[in-house]
Amino acid sequence: MDNLFLYVIAFLIFPGFLFTSSFGLIVSWIDRKVSALIQWRVGPPFFQPFYDLLKLWHKELIIPATAKKNGFILAPLLGISSVTLLATILGIINLNPEYQFIGDIIVILYLMIIPPLSIVWGGFTSGNPFGALGASREIKLMMGYELPFILAIVTVFFKVGSISLGEIIQYQHVHGVMLNLPSMIVAFIVSILCLQAKLAQVPFDISEAECEIMEGPFIEYSGPLLAVYKLMQSMLQVVFPWFLISIFWGGTSFQGWGILWAVLKYIFIITLVILIKNTNPRIRIDQAVKFFWGWVTLVALIAMILMFMGY
């Protein structure tokens, strides 16, 4: 029971909800600010994401009569809970690599599917054809990026010989970070591209393309539920790069200078994402799937072959 209480604390406060969400909001400010600077604008003030969220929280909630009401309300809550769980697992293992369990990455990979799934669910239950169209695009995109992403992650599994995140982090403590190896750099590039799609950033924001299908799955969401989705998306911006850092870049440590180093690694990845986002147009869904199943998978296979050759 004591243990459960600690887990609940972890879930709600430190690596879980409170930490990830506030960090995520800061990151979404960084995102908007850097984008604005690239576009020669000033950008929003620091607390803008918080203001947006608080405002949405106090707005009216509109539920269309044709929507499947329970699913419509449940979808964003399920999404944010799973992201919180993801953050909790990642955080606990990063804090204490010994605290692992075999095969936890599989759990993490599957938990990573739930946030897109909740978006899809929201789009489908809203009853709006644009929502359904956006959701169907999200499914297709998911089909696209899963293959190379799994290939890239599996490359790490086989280098380390384990599917436990803690062991991968410990391996990197002993043998140096994964990114020292050429094969891992290739795999890392692949996973950055998949990260772009997982975060639904341009050029892969196809599911919520605002000028085509008007934010797709989110079109019917308003007020608090929209706030939950926005929060979920900014939490994803923390969790997914954190996962990549953990398996490719030696994880994060929360002691002394480790914090700074961890933040720097994180900012590097997120800056890369923002740069890609701001220098590309959105591509079509079939182009995206072809891109992922074609070139990216090829590159991921090259990474795998390099890994088996020992590089």
């Binding site: 576009q39 020669w40 341009v202 924001d205 605002e210 000028c211 701001n278 147009p281 959105r282």
Partner: peptide, 16 residues
């Protein structure tokens, strides 16, 4: 056109 294909940087630059 840049805005429509999701290329907001083009949008901002040309309008600048």
């Amino acid at each position: 056109a840049g805005h429509f294909i999701g290329y907001n940087t083009v949008f901002m630059w040309t309008w600048k």
